[in-house]
């Protein structure tokens, strides 16, 4: 199944499970659809053998995505997508493995797994859709909810600080880290391609809109208003480097933030270890 679908309009149909799973659970205008489109088109352009690819997710709106796509899909428990994916990848290093996750899934309940997957530098691509809130359960605060922002569990404004997922990943040892928004679609698609091609743990953080909860509770308007806000406040990393921290406040720094091609990958290293172990046995 390495056929690349050329006809643009056929790409999505070819990779979706239209008869089985649609309409999706997502609200009209949800950023998840844009990310799914980018993911599918990226994989199509890369020409990967679909039979040799697994997409793993945890729990949340975002984590429903693998069910809609015609890959081997594994929809697991809350926060645990990365260790499940680690099992798949480590057992079958020849397979391409991607994780679709959200801010709550990856950074709250799955925070420990997230940093350790980064640390191992296992060849998995995590697409973390960050909409700053828990959507599926109805708008509760998440580890990326900005200080002062409203959610159903921060009715007086969030008194906590938030995580920067990209900085967290870089600090923990990930070797490809990038951020895009659902507004900057071409960049997003290209970044997913780069991340999938990168050998090692890669993170693509996608700034996305939950207008249903985050937008409504924080007076950010509807989906298009939120996308417009991403457009206006996004700053490319090259430009961001010339700006002061004050100037960067409330901006989305986008682009490839970190790449390290020198660090060894986990499965590769283990294969070397297997050779050593087998020689010693003899």
């Amino acid at each position: 199944m390495t056929t690349v679908v050329k006809q643009k309009s056929d790409v999505m149909l070819n990779y979706l499970r239209p008869k089985m799973k649609f309409p999706s659970v997502w609200c009209p205008g949800c950023g998840n659809g844009i990310v799914m489109g980018a993911f599918i088109r990226a994989i199509n352009k890369l020409g990967y053998d679909r039979n040799n690819m697994a997409v793993v997710s945890g729990i949340g709106c975002t984590s429903r995505m693998p069910a809609y796509m015609d890959f081997s899909s594994l929809h697991t428990t809350h926060g645990r997508a990365l260790p499940y994916a680690t099992g798949v990848k480590f057992a079958r290093p020849d397979m391409k493995v991607a994780v679709i996750t959200g801010d709550g899934d990856a950074l709250a309940i799955g925070g420990n797994h997230f940093i350790h997957a980064c640390r191992r530098n296992i060849d998995i691509t995590a697409v973390l859709i960050n909409n700053y809130i828990y959507g599926m359960t109805g708008g509760q605060g998440s580890p990326t909810t900005p200080s002062g922002a409203f959610s159903t569990t921060t009715p007086y404004g969030n008194v906590e600080k938030h995580f920067d997922a990209c900085n967290l990943a870089i600090g923990a040892g990930a070797t490809f880290v990038g951020r895009a928004t659902v507004y900057h679609y071409p960049q997003l698609e290209k970044m997913i391609m780069q991340a999938m091609e990168h050998k090692g743990f890669s993170l693509v953080e996608v700034v996305s809109n939950c207008h249903t909860y985050f937008g409504r509770l924080n007076r950010r308007g509807d989906a298009s208003a939120m996308l417009k806000e991403f457009k206006e406040n996004a700053v490319n990393i090259t430009k961001a480097k010339t700006m002061t921290p004050e100037e960067l406040e409330n901006k989305y720094v986008i682009g490839t933030l970190y790449v390290n091609d020198d660090k060894t990958e986990f499965c590769d290293e283990y294969h070397k270890l297997m050779d050593v172990a087998q020689k010693r046995k003899k």
Binding site: A54, Y84, A91
Partner: peptide, 25 residues
């Protein structure tokens, strides 16, 4: 590793259980 198998020490028991299911899949 001597028999071509794999061992991984996970970050906790939640991850351990998840990883063996992933491998079994």
């Amino acid at each position: 590793p001597q028999v071509g198998g794999r061992f991984i020490q996970m970050e906790d028991e939640l991850g351990s259980m998840a990883a063996i299911i992933g491998a079994s899949v």
